[in-house]
């Protein structure tokens, strides 16, 4: 076992996911299976191999600094579960 139920709890907290006890157990087993499979990569010696982060070598994709049409406050807020005036509204952050 690479991952304990406590690890799963910790990762869920990092991921901002509320998981039930039942999910915790299921995820622990399934994530262990997947991680065990992924361990295969350690068979390979990758000393000195430059990591690949992108499929195509595109660097510095600049464009001209021109003012163009933007979304605007009203349209940006249109999908908000709770909005007031020009703001997204959320539950209290600090007591």
């Amino acid at each position: 076992m690479k991952l304990t139920t406590q690890d799963v709890e910790y990762v869920a907290k990092l991921a901002r996911l509320d998981v039930t006890n039942q999910e915790k157990e299921k995820f622990t087993a399934q994530l262990n299976d997947i991680l065990l499979y992924i361990d295969k990569l350690n068979e390979l010696d990758t000393m000195g191999v430059a990591p690949m982060s992108h499929a195509i070598a595109v660097t510095n994709a600049f464009r001209e600094d021109k003012v163009a049409e933007s979304l605007g406050t009203q349209r940006a807020l249109a999908n908000a579960p709770d909005a007031r005036g020009e703001f997204f509204r959320v539950p209290k952050v600090i007591d």
Binding site: R16, D18, A76, N79, A80, P81, D82, F88, V90, P91, K92, V93
Partner: peptide, 17 residues
């Protein structure tokens, strides 16, 4: 749950939301 899509109905604070 802030900018679009679903937001839970029963949250006491931001983290719980």
């Amino acid at each position: 749950g802030v900018k679009y899509g679903l937001r839970t109905a029963d949250a006491r604070d931001l983290m719980e939301m």
